[in-house]
Amino acid sequence: MAKKVSTAQVKHIANLANIPITTREQQELAAAFSETLAVVDNLLKIDIKNIEPTHQVNDLENVLREDKVDEERMFSQEEALANAARTHEGYFVVPRVIDEN
């Protein structure tokens, strides 16, 4: 397993995760990643041939509900917008993601 994580990798991951970080944080995070990855390295020694992965522990399968709107749980427009930082005429205002150019 990769034991050392570079600051360039950290910068790339931060970008993917949409987390703004400073140059100093890049270095700290690279060190923290390396520390953590060194701990989890012990999994390499375990024989996992022919072992199925566990994603869910209580053995439920395909839990579905009726495709029906529950109006009792529905928010009014006012409620839905109550915590929004910016609204405009009853809508959420979202940051621009498409470049004007």
């Binding site: 991951i13 987390i19 703004p20 995070l29 923290a32 990643f33 915590n83 929004a84």
Partner: peptide, 20 residues
């Protein structure tokens, strides 16, 4: 957008975990 502040407000531990 719908609630809370932006992702620049995450503390160090959350940043570490999200990114790892």
């Amino acid at each position: 957008i719908r609630y809370g502040h932006g992702r620049d407000m995450f503390g160090d531990e959350a940043k570490r975990r999200i990114m790892l």
